[in-house]
Amino acid sequence: DEVEIEDFQYDEDSETYFYPCPCGDNFSITKEDLENGEDVATCPSCSLIIKVIYD
């Protein structure tokens, strides 16, 4: 799936974006990952991944 970065929750302390996963955990991707060109957020509890859409 693809999710807009605006739909993520941002945690300023950890500089990490979170998005709810269907399994009950959260996908996460850090601001640093995005700045380095990464665009895939992973869920630590299951095998799902999502593509992050940002400009």
Results as ranks from 00 to 15, higher is better:
D1R: 15
D1G: 15
E2Y: 15
E2L: 15
V3M: 13
V3G: 01
E4P: 03
E4S: 07
I5R: 02
I5Q: 02
I5A: 02
I5C: 04
E6Y: 10
E6K: 04
E6H: 03
D7F: 03
D7T: 05
D7E: 13
F8W: 02
F8S: 01
F8I: 03
F8D: 00
Q9V: 06
Q9Y: 04
Q9D: 10
Q9M: 11
Y10M: 15
Y10G: 00
Y10V: 15
D11M: 12
D11C: 12
D11G: 09
D11W: 02
D13R: 12
D13F: 09
D13H: 06
S14V: 14
E15W: 03
T16I: 06
Y17P: 00
Y17Q: 02
Y19L: 09
Y19F: 12
Y19V: 09
P20Q: 02
P20V: 07
P20W: 01
C21D: 02
P22M: 06
C23K: 06
C23Y: 07
G24N: 15
D25N: 07
N26D: 09
N26W: 04
N26I: 05
N26K: 12
F27K: 04
S28D: 04
I29F: 15
T30N: 00
K31C: 02
K31Y: 05
K31L: 02
E32V: 04
E32K: 04
D33V: 11
L34D: 01
L34C: 06
L34S: 08
E35M: 10
N36Y: 03
G37N: 11
D39Q: 08
V40H: 01
V40Q: 15
V40L: 04
V40Y: 10
A41L: 08
T42H: 11
T42N: 08
T42W: 10
T42C: 09
T42R: 12
T42S: 09
C43W: 00
C43T: 00
C43A: 00
P44V: 02
S45G: 15
C46Y: 00
C46E: 04
S47W: 03
S47D: 13
S47L: 11
S47C: 14
L48T: 08
I49P: 07
I49K: 06
I49R: 11
I49Y: 01
I49G: 08
I49C: 05
I50Y: 02
K51S: 07
K51P: 11
V52L: 04
V52Q: 01
V52D: 02
V52I: 10
V52S: 05
I53H: 11
I53C: 04
I53K: 12
I53A: 12
I53M: 11
I53Q: 12
Y54L: 04
Y54C: 11
Y54R: 13
Y54I: 09
D55L: 02
D55M: 02
D55Q: 14
D55T: 05
